[in-house]
Design a protein around this nucleic acid. Structure first.
Lengths: 161, 161
DNA sequence: CAATTTTAGTTGACCCATCAACATAATTCA
DNA sequence: TGAATTATGTTGATGGGTCAACTAAAATTG
């Protein structure tokens, strides 16, 4: 075997190994979609993707605490803390301490935050619809189901086979 | 409307907006899968996910140039350059300049690199199989098809509707 | 053949996310 | 009640990725 031969043959791999991997494919697609989403949000309302997620989650909840967001959105609480901080600094989010439990903060959108929210919402919705134009309802249903199953698999502590 | 009411009602959103978004769902699942994959590779052979991708791609190709990898794997060439550098430093990848075109480097796995490759390959394969255990062939087929369609959509320069 | 443009790869600056350590506050329980 | 545990949120260190500027080399073009 010469040094320029692939280490594995097609017979072994049925093509390039990575390209078969669901995770690899997802990773590629995800990074392209993220970049696109970030660009769209930056152009439309000047916030980052994560900031949008925070705003959207707070906007939808009306009032939440940081730890709830972290759980619900599966975001790191440190990350969340910094993002909230920057949004509070920009006057888009309101944070007020709980009267009885002095650890928790109640988060809500300020009027400016709501404005951003309502500006961004149709933009993101249109994009989502646009992404779905080439997909059938059946494909979307299966896609979501697979995502749910993969998420469960990803949460299992370990795979031992 | 009190300040603690959600800014959008369920009637508006059919539930929390973000949770409907394919991109948001993908993002969550992707980050969990990445974390899991990174952990498995670290424990098994002590390399990062990106390093594994480089090794797998080089191993499968037998010999490539950096720019081909960047195109094929949709990875930033700067990122790739650094990763290759670290893998060369660890003696896992061999880089030799082209005789005629002095810009290009030909990359291949060293014996140590091949060893890592062959150690990691079954581990990653087992994981992929394991991730698929709860999925039917039909679901996998649809999932891949949707990913391909989404990737195309993500590459379109702009959505104007 | 000289000037311009394109391509390969590197590097520095920066951003964002992750992790662990920490401070503070509340709760449990002995 | 006092001690240990648990929960909330912040912060610093670090790592990894992205972007853009840059060098060097090759190809194109006038």
């Amino acid at each position: 075997m010469s040094s320029s031969d692939p280490v594995v043959s097609d017979a072994d791999t049925d093509g390039l190994p990575l390209h078969q991997y669901l995770t690899y494919r997802m990773s590629r697609v995800h990074s392209k979609l993220s970049a696109q989403g970030a660009r769209i949000l930056r152009d439309a309302v000047g916030i980052t993707l994560t900031q949008w997620r925070v705003i959207a989650l707070v906007g939808a909840a009306g009032e939440t605490r940081l730890s709830d967001l972290a759980r619900e959105a599966a975001l790191d609480k440190g990350l969340l803390s910094r993002n909230v901080k920057s949004l509070v600094a920009r006057g888009l989010i309101n944070a007020k301490q709980d009267d009885t439990d002095h650890r928790v903060q109640h988060l809500s959108l300020t009027p400016d935050g709501q404005e951003i929210f309502f500006q961004a919402l149709p933009v993101t919705r249109r994009r989502q619809e646009w992404l779905r134009t080439d997909l059938t309802n059946e494909e979307i249903r299966v896609f979501k189901r697979v995502l749910d199953k993969l998420e469960l698999a990803a949460e299992r502590v370990d795979f031992s086979s």
